[in-house]
Nucleic acid binder design. Structure first.
Lengths: 220, 220
DNA sequence: TCAATTTCGAACTGTTTGGTACGGTAATAG
DNA sequence: CTATTACCGTACCAAACAGTTCGAAATTGA
């Protein structure tokens, strides 16, 4: 281990800041935001109460830092899951599989901090952050769809925007079911089926009794 | 107003039990479970603190009653939205539209008690109730799909089970986005697109570069 | 009018919680 | 070896909280 940073003057810390933040994430993840007390964080993070206030600030500040760090890490992982595969279906399925796997990881609480916990936090900054994060996820998927069009894997009129947000909706639905205790096995199967669904070619209408469909705008 | 029940002996109550329960639902809905205090309920329900304990019990009991009443009412409404239309597409779209509309109702908090609040409550009975409720919703949609097969609106090999749980996943995704502040207009458009998606005929695979798809079991 | 019964409002009690002050401890600098 | 710096653990305080007690108020029955 390289020690390229000179030690600060006084007594060294008894904890690693980022590691403690990771533990805070777990605490919030399992108990929700309002459900955790400072003592929960003290116990879970392995940081004494005064140090906690001195280094991180109050509960809200800790949550915001934990949320940002978690989103950054998870965003990178999902992007990798999405972009590492060659084929489009494997990309989408890999994305959804990763979502399911991380939502059913043993040792962590079920679900996802971003999907199951953060939306309930009554805080403007959290909401703003969340909206950006989900928009980013949808944009990522949409870009992958566009690449799929370029590669000829899907037709040029594939509704990339709509399907991208449907992928996100479906992944959120899978995550919520994970939180509610649905097994990884079932969710992995459903992830595959979801990937199949969102890759279906645009319907030219089927069946004899097509019924009256309301005309409406189509988005790009 | 008919007075067919004889008045009980003592001082009459200053509140209606079911109305108060409805207000409790709103309180939990907007603040989450852990976020509400007894004083919040006292203020929101218009019931004095001792009466609240005497009539309803503690916070957990109030939440369980509110949850059951809410689920019953919402279950009936969604079933009606699903079954009132003749055509299958209108049924599914009506279902999703109703979900979006009730999740973006003005005057209530955004989202849904069942989707956004209840899953975070760390209580075995709540979890059990939720699992049953979502299974019931999926079963309802699945039955509608079966009727669609009987009516010849969709092919006989339509994957009713998978598509039903996808409808539920998508509706949960829409609800979560409502909670995060997405506008009703956008969500209504996405509800229509979701209805289109889940009614697409099963893919016989498309495009020239079909890629390597893992073989896997197919459910009924 | 008076007793019995039920609810309501205010106040009370023990506990939990958020946040801080204080002395002890472990490291570096000279 | 001493001074300085920064962190750690304990203990403390005020505010918030859950749950209860108690007397007043409202209604029925006699």
């Amino acid at each position: 281990m390289i020690q390229n940073t000179i030690r600060p003057r006084g007594r060294p810390r008894g904890f690693d800041e980022l590691e403690a933040l990771g533990k805070a994430t777990q605490v919030f993840w399992s108990k929700g935001y309002d459900g955790v007390t400072i003592d929960d964080l003290v116990a879970g993070m392995g940081v004494g109460r005064p140090s906690l206030y001195a280094v991180f600030g109050d509960k809200r500040a800790i949550f915001l830092r934990a949320l940002r760090a978690y989103a950054e890490k998870k965003g990178a992982s999902t992007a990798e899951a999405l972009l590492s595969s060659q084929g489009l279906r494997d990309s989408i399925a890999g994305f959804l599989r990763y979502i399911v796997e991380s939502a059913t990881e043993e040792g962590s609480a079920a679900g996802c901090l971003l999907v199951c916990v953060a939306p309930l936090v009554d805080d403007a900054e959290v909401r703003r952050f969340l909206k950006n994060a989900t928009a980013g996820a949808a944009a990522l998927v949409e870009r992958r769809f566009r690449d799929g069009i370029s590669a000829g894997e899907i037709p040029a009129d594939f509704p990339v925007g709509a399907r991208a947000s449907q992928v996100v909706d479906l992944s959120n639905g899978l995550t919520m079911r994970a939180r509610m205790g649905t097994s990884r096995k079932v969710l992995l199967r459903d992830a595959e089926e979801a990937a199949d669904l969102v890759l279906l070619p645009r319907g030219t209408n089927h069946g004899p009794s097509g019924g009256a469909r309301k005309a409406r705008a189509v988005r790009g």
